[in-house]
Design a protein around this nucleic acid. Structure first.
Lengths: 212, 212
DNA sequence: CAGAAATATGAACACCGTTTAGTAAAATGG
DNA sequence: CCATTTTACTAAACGGTGTTCATATTTCTG
């Protein structure tokens, strides 16, 4: 039955076409423009057809979510070569902020929106595996830092969560525009990215001082 | 001309009615349910009427935004009585997380959504005065902590921003559901609020160790 | 070739924010 | 007191959203 196989492949192909159309719309036009109707138009099918391949929009968003996570994890993968754990931690922070600022919509998809996570809950099979992996990388690094005298007597998971929170807060307050409304940056050079970066450096110094 | 005055009062009254209808919808039904049409139905007017009193939905959202900020600032006001600056800082953090968890939609309105800020930009008159005030309270406290030996040689504004970011990150990762998908909390008691609180305590310990 | 099964869609439903043209009521001027 | 202007309001529409369902159209199979 080579015929059914070919058809099967065609089906998978269309499913991927839908996803890549969604991906392109999402990355070039942003979240707003990524509607079922726009996707349908791009692949030259009826909007209703999309529902034969994806249950609803959340399923598409979830698929984009996974792709976005692969992007992020790949950004981290490079840093595994840095042997000193604290240096690695610093580099991870820089990579994280850079990723968030350069891919704001993707970042929002990964860490701000609630919809993609809701879909994860329905697939009980495996939790948020990509997310877990990224967090495990962070925890592993924190653990190694602790072995070198940093964050002594503190719980690894909680320290990791605090660090993640700080990075997430820095990034979202920057991209949401709240940073620009509160700081002296308004009257000064108003280079918000530079201000956020220097705030990150301050955070690094704070962490550095936590070595016993 | 007492007539025009009375009419003027009626106009102001309706404007407030719209806002309080919006507020009630927002706090009881959430963000999604707060549509122009729902508000109109609640006050028993046509949707178009609302546009005679507010330029667009963003203006209403901005008004709710200001109300939300007054709520937050009032939560902080009480803490001014705490004389020790570091104790005050700790109490502020607790008040902040408590506010965020107990008023999740309001918090999102204040610190996550971009729409209310966009409206602020159009009113050049005065920046984000409420937000500035809250941030100034934080900065003042950090400054006093520095006078007592905390965060020495670090820039007050940047330390404040880092602290704010951490709090914001903790709160949003909690309320967006991302915390629950990444931590061991899944298999353990899965009391996420308690986990977030203990992460906050870890953060406090970290700050405490930054005293020279 | 007929019938069954898979595939695709047009049209509709119920929403959304917003605008416009038009109506009804009230205030004003003569 | 009537005519006119101003004010207050709204019905209906525009273009958009996600989603569903009955109806084609195409493809495979006996």
């Amino acid at each position: 039955m080579g015929v059914t196989e070919r058809k099967e492949r065609h089906k998978e192909e269309l499913k991927r076409d839908i996803l890549s159309a969604a991906k392109e719309l999402f990355t070039t036009q942003g979240l707003e423009a990524t509607s079922i109707r726009n996707i349908a138009e791009k692949i030259e099918y009826s909007p209703a057809t999309i529902y034969l391949y994806y249950k609803d929009k959340n399923e598409i968003i979830h698929a984009l979510h996974q792709e976005g996570f692969k992007m992020l994890v790949s950004h981290f993968q490079v840093l595994a070569t840095v042997s000193d754990p604290f240096e690695r931690l610093k580099a991870m922070g820089r990579a994280y902020t850079r990723f968030a600022l350069e891919n704001q919509d993707v970042y929002e998809l990964l860490f701000v929106m609630k919809e993609p996570l809701l879909h994860v809950e329905s697939c009980v099979e495996q939790g948020w595996n990509e997310g877990d992996r990224a967090f495990d990388i962070l925890m592993q690094t924190v653990k190694e830092c602790q072995a070198k005298g940093y964050f002594q007597t503190l719980d690894t998971e909680k320290v990791s969560f605090v660090i993640w929170s700080t990075m997430h807060g820095l990034c979202t307050l920057r991209t949401s525009g709240h940073l620009g409304h509160v700081t002296v940056a308004r009257e000064s050079g108003h280079d918000l990215d530079a201000l956020m970066t220097s705030a990150y450096e301050t955070f690094v110094v704070m962490l550095e001082r936590l070595k016993s």
